[in-house]
């Protein structure tokens, strides 16, 4: 018998070592998130997953699950906070959804729709972030980076390459390429790398793909992100520890 905690009135079982986010997703409960990825260690930077645990706000992706916690997620207070965070992300970078090739496949956009964020609400910073188009097959459009570090984690943990890193602090924090020239062409990144697959927004792009996927069949055209995040989350693990739901997730 595993222990349980309460999430928005539902009883959620958990295994030792699971976070609130992992346990919730495994049990089929969605908590909005951006920097959390089922295949990587939680990072806790975007704060989209903030919930109230026993009355105190905390990031559910890093919060270890404990017996009898009272977790509140889908309440207006938390959703209002999430809307503000999404608005700040939109204002901080240069996100022009209508002309972004990641439109329809972008987690930030999908979250915006899901949380019903209709206006930015903040003054746009319009940062100047030139592209890195130096690599023959891969384009970096830093304008859209939300600093989730998924690419950093994927490149080092899975690809063993360390192509990406974050530099600077606070508002000047930004993604850099680990090469003396600072250019992607001088790294050993490859199209098949995990780092190519994890960016939740439209920063790391295979070149010349653009808008080849028509409107209507893009990932979030049919079902909202809240429904799909559950598809990706590890549910029941089999005896060997393999998780069916993880396969094919990206």
């Amino acid at each position: 018998m595993s222990d349980t905690f309460q999430l928005d009135g539902a009883t959620v079982p958990f295994e030792p070592g699971q976070t609130v986010m992992q346990a919730a997703l495994a049990a089929g409960h969605y908590i909005p998130h951006l920097c959390y990825h089922p295949e990587f260690k939680p990072h806790g930077s975007c704060k989209l997953c903030t919930v109230k645990v026993n009355g105190r706000t905390t990031a559910s992706c890093t919060m270890p699950a404990e017996a009898n916690l009272n977790v509140e997620s889908n309440i207006e207070e938390m959703n209002a906070l999430r809307r503000t965070l999404v608005q700040m992300l939109f204002a901080e970078g240069n996100h022009f959804c209508p002309s972004c090739e990641k439109s329809g496949n972008c987690m930030l956009q999908a979250l915006g729709y899901d949380l019903e964020v209709h206006a930015t609400g903040f003054r746009h910073l319009y940062p100047d972030r030139p592209l890195d188009a130096s690599h023959p097959d891969i384009l970096l459009d830093f304008n859209r980076c939300i600093l989730c570090e998924l690419c950093v984690r994927a490149s080092s943990e899975v690809d063993g390459k360390n192509v990406f890193a974050l530099a600077g602090r606070g508002i000047t924090k930004h993604l850099i390429v680990n090469a003396e020239s600072g250019l992607l062409k001088d790294t050993n990144i490859a199209l098949s790398d995990k780092a190519m697959q994890v960016c939740p927004v439209g920063v790391i792009l295979p070149k010349r793909v653009g808008f080849s996927q028509p409107v209507g069949v893009r990932r979030y055209d049919q079902r909202p992100i809240s429904a799909q995040a559950l598809d990706d989350a590890p549910r029941q693990t089999d005896a060997s520890g393999n998780c069916e739901a993880c396969e094919g997730s990206s």
Binding site: P98, S99, E101, A133, R208, V209, G210, F211
Partner: peptide, 12 residues
Amino acid sequence: RPYWEAPVMVQR
């Protein structure tokens, strides 16, 4: 901007 973006972007 990358060239493949232009046909969509110019609509703006």
